[in-house]
Each structure stands twice: as C-alpha cells, then as structure tokens.
Design a protein around this nucleic acid. Structure first.
Lengths: 364, 364
DNA sequence: GGTTACAGGGCAATCGTTTGCACCGGGTTT
DNA sequence: AAACCCGGTGCAAACGATTGCCCTGTAACC
C-alpha cells in the first residue's frame, strides 16, 4: 500500500484522531493531485493557489502552500513542459570544453541561464561535424527551448541546424559563427584586434610578421587574415603570403606550419598563432630548432588563456576575447529571443548580432 | 490556417485530386495524431506501428512508417518522458569545468552517455555548496534519470542529495566522493599512489618531504594524507606534521602554505601539492623566494594535466587519475543501476564502488 | 424582494504518447 | 452449431499540470 492513497491516509487520520496525526511523509513523488486530495479541494485550486492566482482566498493559499512545503512538493517540470511546450532547458554545444575559452564561455552561459531559471543541456562536437549533428539531434529530441552553439571546425554549412526551425527552436551562434546575416550571433571582431596587434609588433621593430591561421571553414580564420592583411598594408608594406600558414589545430599540423616558416630564406621575426594552444605547439617545435623564444622571434597569439601565466613561453601579447562575457551575451540574446518569440511572426523576424570588443594583453 | 488541420488537408486533396497531390510539408510539428488522421487509422495503431508491435499488419506498419518519414516525424520526447517517467537525461555536476581533470571526466561521461542514448544536463557548483544545492534542485526539477556528481570542496554532508531519493533518482559520485559506504561511487585510490610517490622521492634522496593538502571536507584530502603518512612511516621515519600544510585552492591560500613551509628552520627539499593547479601557484610563490624549482626543492603533484607539458616548471612527478576513464566508469555504473532499478527494491539495494588505478607520470 | 455583482472554487478539456482491454469478422475446433 | 481463437484494430484512460468557463453562495444595490 502506497502512502499516496487518500483512504490510507484517511484511515490513519481516523485511527489516530487524538494524536492529531497527519501522515506527512510520502513514499511516492508528491503531486498536485495528492495535495488536493489531502486538503479536499480540487486540483485546479491547488494549482492556482501555488501560482498565487487572485481568485483563491488567502486562507486556502496558505493551507496549500504549507502542505506543499511539508510534502516537499516540487512541480513536475516534465508535465509542465509538456503542457506549455516549454522546457526551460537550453542546449549548448561547443567543440571542446577542455579549452579554456569554451569552458569560460560555458560558465558565462550557465550562470546567466541559472539566473533566468534555465538549465543547460550540454554537448561537445569534438570539432567533428558528424558528432555535432548527433548532438543537435539529441537536443532537438529533448525539445530544448533554444540552442547556443559554437560550430565545429569542420562545419561550413549549417544545414543540420535548419531542422531546428521546424521545431521552432531558436539558435544563437557563439564565437565560431557562420558568416550569414540571417542568424543570431555573438562574436568578437578579431579584425581590429589583429590590426592593433600588428601595429604593436611593428613598434617592437619587427618587420617580418608570420601568421599561423586556422582552417578556412572557420569565419574567425578569415577575420584574422583580413586583419593581418590590413595591419601589414597600413605600413605600406606588401603582404607576403609566404608568411601565412595554416593548421588544423593538431600538434603535427602546427609543427609543419612552423617548420616551413623557419625554413624560409628570410624567416620571420614574429609569429602570430591562431590561439594560445596553437602557440604552445608552435613554441614546442621552435624550441627544437633552437629558436630563442620571444627574442629571435616574438610570439603573439589569441585567447589569453589562464595558464599563460604559468607556461614557460607565453606569447608576448595575446588577444583576450572575453569568453565569459560572450557567453553571458549569447544567453541574454537567447532569453530576449525567447521572450519575444510569440510577438513577432517568423516572417518579420529580425536577427540579432552582437560584437564583443577584444583587448590586447601583454605578458612581460 | 495551420497545415495540421485535417480539413485543410482534406480540401487540398480534394481540390487537387487529379494531381494526386498530398500536402506533405506541415508548418507545425508533426505528431502521431496527424499521421493517424491522414491515414485514417487510430493513434494507437500509429503508435504501435512505429514501435513494431506484432499485432499490426505489415502493410499498415509500412504505410505509417513511410508517412512518418515523409513528415519528418520525431516523437515528442517530452510527452514520452512524461508518460513513462523517464527522460533519458543524466545530470552531471562538477566543481569547475575549467579544470583539465573535470573537463576530461565530463568527456568520458558524455561520450558514454551518447552511446547509450542519453544526453547530459550540466551544472557547475563553483566549489560552493550553495550553488551545488541550487543546481541539484534544478536537475531534480528537470527529473533527470540519474545524477553524476563531484562534490564541491565545501560539501561535507550530502543532505541536499537525499531529496533525490524521494524522486527515485540514483546518484553516482565521481572522484570527489563521500566516505560513506551506502552510496555508489567511482574514485581513485590515492593512498597507494601517494605511497609510491613518496618512495620515489626518497630514492631521489629527498628526506624532508612536505605536503600541501586540500580542505578536510574532501575525502581525497584524507586519502592523500594517509598515503603520505604511510609513505613516510615505511622508511621508519617519524611523520612531522609541521611539514603538512593546507590550501583552500585559492592562490593566496597556497601562497601562505608555501610561505610557512619555506620559513621552517629546516625547510623541505620536496613539496607535494594537492593537484597541478595548486602546484602552479606554489611554484609561483617559490620563485619569488628565489627557490630553484626542482633543484633545491623537488615539486610533485596530482592530476597530470595536459598543460604540464608546456608549463615552465612542471612537477617532476604527477599522479594521473585518468579522469576520462573515471567518467566512463561512472556513466556505465549509472547505466547499470538504471537498468536494474525496477528489479530490486530499495531495501535490498546494493551499492557499487569502483576504484580506478592511478599512475605516476614523470616529467623529465 | 428581486436583481446584480463578485468572491471563491470546481469541472473538464488539453498537451502527445502509451497500453490494457474490447471489439469484430472469419476460420477452426469439438 | 455453439464455442473458441486470433489477427488486426480502435477506444479510452492515464501521466501532471494549466486554464477557460461554469457554478454557488453571499452581500450589496435599487
């Protein structure tokens, strides 16, 4: 016999009248129904009482709330979500969490989500489009209310995210965003930052600035490259594409890139890496070649990860992209979209873009 | 007018009879109901057809499946979860994801979860019990099927997790586990590893081995300390508690600990830190005091984080706790519990403990 | 006194899916 | 011929909560 049965409770109450005993603890998960039974009111009354509906008297409200508390009642979100077609869950997909950048971004997202009563469903694409697809599907099946995603390095078109439209799940792209205009996105403008970085390197009297870029599919690669070209051009110098390399982020890919750069007749006197992880691999290889790090060649980079403070050869300058703020901004944007979703029809839907400023950080 | 209306579709069909046109695309999310309408069968038939119920004829099954595919039908998990009281979502709570250890652990958990058709709901406690409580609550409200948690450093009793029992949500503790026997847990035995590490340090001719431990609340602190004491004792030496310090993981806390150790009349010639992050802070302070790292004092640690390979002063030895494997093991344990949940009553419930072996890793 | 007004609360439909049971027609068994 | 069986399908309840609408009793009004 389960504790939830009214008659069981009733018997107990009757049997122990003079003890004024009420069976409070229940073996099963408390529901609105049970509260209603025990209080001898209807479920609608309980529901309304709990949500402070004006039609319910203060007395009833109090009684309901009291019992709800005593029973440790918590609304079954699944039922509510089901009914309201809302889940208060946001999907978040990033390439990797082990990267300082993304873990900080997620923290920003998560903190903001929690403030707004949302929880996050989490997945990694491991930088592979196949995995990304799989995770997106899982999120769709879970009917997340919205999705924040940082695309994998393999993702150049986002068809698999189109299916989310049919399910009316808004998407906010984060950092690794598509170049399309008809999407919501939060990102850094690395163009300006890159130009500034190059300016600074010129001031350090560096003339041959090399650049190890990421895969073409990533828009951030293009931004960096554009900034690089602009930066060099501003000094009225000709851009030498020999000085531009690429890595697929693997250690080997980066090593090859560095090897070619060091092998040039006129090797670089500065190397900008796609990010601090690429930088570490680049330094590792350069050391093997007996390069004096940050003397023979100045190393610069992007991301400004925390561990730079502890590494043997941090970049002399790294562009901080403020991932936590980006995460916050992405979540806020999503909240905003979610709130105004019903207002506007999809036809008139306006897409939001938000650019987060970057900052040069120097390690002396 | 919405595409889901039967009459709307009907009209279209009638109007375009000779085109044999069937309106396939639907503006709204397809449901079983809609399939049923279009095929003129009952919802139960559709439901059974989709799940290959033996009582449904092959013909019907085929028709249903075909239309389902054409409509891009995907079952509404929320409804199913609601009905079946299963969500195929696992909650995962860790102190921080920025720590290499936890991010790898999560990867192990996530990969295993995905293989088993589960998705993970994710939260960080930021090492604060208040936040932990909040996140646990959110997970409970989401009715996760199970929870994997690595306790915050402030958590010495897990009362807030007791409420999960009432909701029949099994919990597997991960790495930062309580010392109780009546819980499911996956952890490393750091005792043996610590003893080995001390042995090794003795072989390097170190006699005064100091130890910067973590907060007492964490069982891992006790294990480390026990190992330390055992290791020292095996050499028939007296354990000098002056050589044992503590940190709350803050940079300042670690600095204070190092300061006191260096200030001893007989300062240590080796320092073991609670983990590689504490190690980095310890080194930072020691450098200020002009200690020659890994010469005057050998530094040892736990975790073997990836970035050790790139840091200026990695520990000479670090104990790898194989977080990915731990994550995998935790998820597998949870899967196992979930599958056998109905079999056994809570009374006879047996708790699972799994110990993951560690390994010493040397940085030369 | 009769009507209105309103406070307070109950009924029942609803969300999408599953599932025990009823039903129905035709063939098989005693 | 009555009783059974069985493949194939439909009916309806159930999961937990929300909500539009209806009902009842009492007080205030003309």
């Amino acid at each position: 016999m389960r504790g939830r049965s009214f008659w069981y409770n009733y018997k107990i109450i009757v049997l122990s009248l003079n003890l004024a005993y009420i069976r409070i603890v229940s073996e099963s998960i408390p529901t609105i129904k049970e509260i209603a039974k025990r209080l001898n009111v209807s479920v609608s009354t309980v529901s309304r009482a709990l949500s402070d509906h004006p039609r319910i008297s203060a007395k009833t409200k109090e009684a309901v709330k009291e019992l709800a508390k005593a029973l440790n009642y918590e609304p079954n979100s699944k039922a509510i979500f089901f009914k309201q077609k809302k889940s208060y869950v946001i999907g978040v997909i990033v390439p990797h969490i082990y990267e300082d950048f993304f873990s900080k971004g997620i923290s920003g997202i998560e903190d903001t989500a929690l403030e707004n009563g949302y929880t996050i469903l989490f997945g990694q694409s491991h930088d592979r489009i196949e995995k990304e697809r799989q995770v997106v599907d899982a999120m769709k099946n879970q009917r997340v209310d919205g999705l924040i995603i940082s695309l994998s390095k393999e993702t150049n078109k986002s068809d698999h995210l189109k299916t989310l439209d049919a399910y009316n799940i808004p998407v906010v792209y984060f950092d690794r965003v598509p170049s399309l205009a008809n999407v919501n996105k939060v990102y850094c403008n690395l163009f300006e930052g890159t130009v500034d970085m190059i300016e600074w390197l010129f001031k350090q009297d560096r003339k041959r600035i090399a650049f190890i870029n990421g895969p073409n599919a990533i828009i951030a690669s293009k931004e960096r490259l554009d900034g690089y070209i602009e930066g060099i051009s501003r000094r009225k110098l000709k851009v030498d594409m020999q000085m531009v390399e690429q890595t697929d982020f693997s250690e080997e890919g980066t090593h090859k890139a560095v090897a070619r750069l060091l092998g040039l007749k006129k090797p670089p006197d500065a190397i900008i890496s796609f990010n601090d992880y690429v930088h570490m691999d680049a330094v590792k290889y350069a050391l093997k070649e007996h390069v004096k790090i940050n003397e023979d060649i100045l190393f610069a980079s992007y991301a400004n990860i925390s561990v730079n403070k502890h590494t043997a050869y941090p970049p002399v300058v790294s562009i901080d992209q403020f991932p936590y703020s980006q995460g916050e901004a992405a979540m806020k944007m999503l909240m905003d979209i979610l709130q105004n979703k019903s207002d506007e029809d999809t036809a008139t839907k306006a897409f939001q873009h938000k650019e987060i400023p970057v900052a040069l950080v120097y390690n002396s």
